[in-house]
């Protein structure tokens, strides 16, 4: 296993040490070690079932783990409701299937968190929400319902919804896998812009173009463990591991 790159622990915003997780008796995550610095952009790739989604879902405790430790933005993850809510407020997440709330308008989707979690006045929450909707370039859809939007628009709303909570870390769980090809770009553009502003990002994705363009590090996972991690150039041009090479040849050659 390659060495953890980070040297100074002070600026590590996420520290994962010896993380192990089982579903029943199935060992899904095996000895995951990962340190993420503030402002770092990390792309995680790997075959399906390799544990990549499970890893990032552990970071905001959508999944529990049985062994190891996890520190997010200086808060250690323990089995405590308040503690978990604190971490979740600080970590935004974007899902493969958007998961917008179908019974709320786009604007209500965006203001739900600020109003009920951050206890902001409605006007303020709506102003912030409109700013973010403008950033993802769909302010005119504010009063529509999610079902009336295209997939790409829905995913951009989902990103804006997370950003409204003003998170320090953004997790992306295959944000473009459920989209038609022509909509992938509009979502990736938003993500690239976000990366350029210095957001700490962990993306599970197979969009290798995106990885080359913005990632500081690419991590390859298989069988529940980190096989290889490197900066994008090295990773794509000079993979150190047989398994990585095979995977890259499979996804790049079609």
């Amino acid at each position: 296993m390659s060495a953890v790159k980070s040297s100074s622990g002070a600026e590590d915003i996420i520290v994962i040490e010896n993380l192990n997780k089982w579903y029943g008796n199935f060992h899904v995550l095996r000895d995951i070690n990962l340190r993420v610095k503030k402002g770092e952009r990390i792309v995680i790739c790997g075959p399906s079932g390799s544990g990549k989604s499970t890893t990032i879902r552990c970071i905001n405790r959508l999944e529990e783990f049985q062994e190891g430790s996890l520190v997010v933005d200086g808060v250690e993850m323990i089995n405590d409701v308040k503690n978990i809510e604190t971490i979740r407020k600080d970590v935004g997440m974007v899902f493969q299937h958007f998961n917008l709330f179908p019974h709320l308008t786009i604007l209500e989707n965006l203001t739900l968190g600020p109003i009920w979690v951050q206890k902001k006045p409605k006007a303020e929450a709506e102003a912030t929400a409109m700013q973010y909707l403008e950033r993802v370039k769909i302010p005119d859809q504010a009063d529509k319902y999610p079902g009336q939007l295209s997939g790409g628009q829905q995913q951009r709303v989902a990103i804006a919804r997370s950003l409204c909570m003003n998170p320090n870390i953004m997790l992306f769980d295959e944000p473009t896998s459920a989209l038609d090809p022509e909509m992938i770009k509009e979502v990736l553009d938003v993500m690239v812009e976000l990366a350029q502003e210095g957001m700490t990002m962990l993306c599970v994705t197979h969009e290798m173009g995106f990885a080359k363009k913005v990632a500081d590090r690419v991590i390859f996972m298989d069988a529940g463990q980190i096989v290889e991690e490197n900066e994008p150039n090295e990773f794509f041009n000079n993979p150190q591991n047989e398994r990585t090479k095979l995977f890259l040849s499979q996804i790049l050659n079609h």
């Binding site: 299937h97 917008l100 709330f101």
Partner: peptide
């Protein structure tokens, strides 16, 4: 769908609020 609860959790909503704002209305 399970995703509704997960999305609400990732916004930091408490289980009580997830119930009253997301689950019950739907």
């Amino acid at each position: 769908p399970q995703g509704q609860t997960e999305a609400a959790r990732s916004l930091g909503l408490s289980e009580k609020r997830i119930m009253s704002l997301i689950i019950v209305p739907q």
